[in-house]
């Protein structure tokens, strides 16, 4: 299959599809990263606080790397993309938008589901025919493994502790699972990306993700919500109200003076 050694080699529908993919990847990490950062200073224990703060920093760094690729493809610069867009212009999945509500069980389950999806996706992107994306994916995967270890060890620890803890974890799983399925919402970009060998089909990634998360959930004594229906819309800019609230907070300083030099 033809390789795309540089972003400039992308043309027409393939190029548009890559732009769409990069928005989804960057926006998921930015918004999830912001949610992680909301635990800074508030987590139940210091190690949890440091972990979520570090994962936030990683994810924001990852989103910046995707935004830099977008910028190289003619989109606005990374700061403008993060701080200068309105909710409907974002392409993140609703899972990232869910408020933390200081619910540790929810955030741990979500972190595990989200980062497992990230790992599946990055692993697939390592074989992308788009060379710069494959190189970035290989790099990000090494960092992602620590997020995965974090989520997995917490789930097993909570799952194997008291009955009340297990019930809270199950409730958090039941609530977040349909949103996690929304990470794999198919888009019109799927077909051109698959045809060009740049990324696999979302359905295919979803299957891989389901087989990756189920053994850990079962090991933690949880029931996998097999009949859950995906919450979609995020990939076309339809988001829960919570995203607009998050953005208001995150973009507050930037919007005071978007032309300010830092």
């Amino acid at each position: 299959m033809k390789r795309f050694e540089a972003l400039d080699d992308l043309k027409g529908a393939t190029r548009d599809a890559v732009v769409d993919l990069l928005y989804r990847l960057g926006d998921d990490d930015l918004i999830m990263g912001h949610r992680d950062s909301e635990w800074t200073g508030l987590a139940p224990i210091l190690e949890g606080d440091i972990a979520f703060s570090s994962m936030a920093q990683d994810k924001m760094g990852h989103s910046q790397a995707y935004y830099q690729m977008l910028h190289a493809l003619g989109e606005p610069d990374p700061d403008k993309l993060a701080f200068g867009r309105k909710a409907r212009q974002f392409r993140c999945a609703a899972l990232a938008c869910l408020p933390n509500d200081r619910d540790w069980a929810l955030c741990i389950i979500r972190q595990f589901l989200y980062d497992s999806a990230g790992m599946v996706r990055l692993t697939a992107l390592c074989d992308s025919t788009l060379t710069p994306l494959g190189q970035l994916a290989r790099k990000l995967r090494g960092e992602k493994k620590y997020h995965l270890l974090h989520g997995r060890s917490w789930i097993l620890r909570i799952g194997h502790s008291t009955r009340e803890a297990g019930e809270k974890l199950q409730a958090a799983l039941d609530r977040s699972y349909p949103f996690a399925l929304g990470l794999f919402e198919p888009t019109e970009a799927d077909e051109p990306l698959v045809q060009a060998g740049i990324a696999p089909r979302e359905d295919e990634l979803r299957k891989q993700w389901e087989s990756a998360v189920a053994p850990v959930l079962i090991d933690a004594g949880l029931r996998v919500p097999e009949t859950a229906v995906a919450v979609t819309g995020g990939r076309s800019g339809r988001h829960p109200e919570a995203l607009a609230e998050l953005l208001k907070n995150m973009q507050m300083v930037y919007s005071l003076d978007p032309t300010a030099k830092w």
């Binding site: 190690e47 440091i50 972990a51 703060s53 570090s54 994962m55 920093q57 990683d58 960092e143 620590y146 270890l149 974090h150 060890s153």
Partner: peptide, 13 residues
């Protein structure tokens, strides 16, 4: 291992 994450992104405790 006490914590997978430390004072900088590259360190564990």
């Amino acid at each position: 291992l006490e914590s997978l994450f430390g004072p900088t992104l590259c360190r564990s405790i």
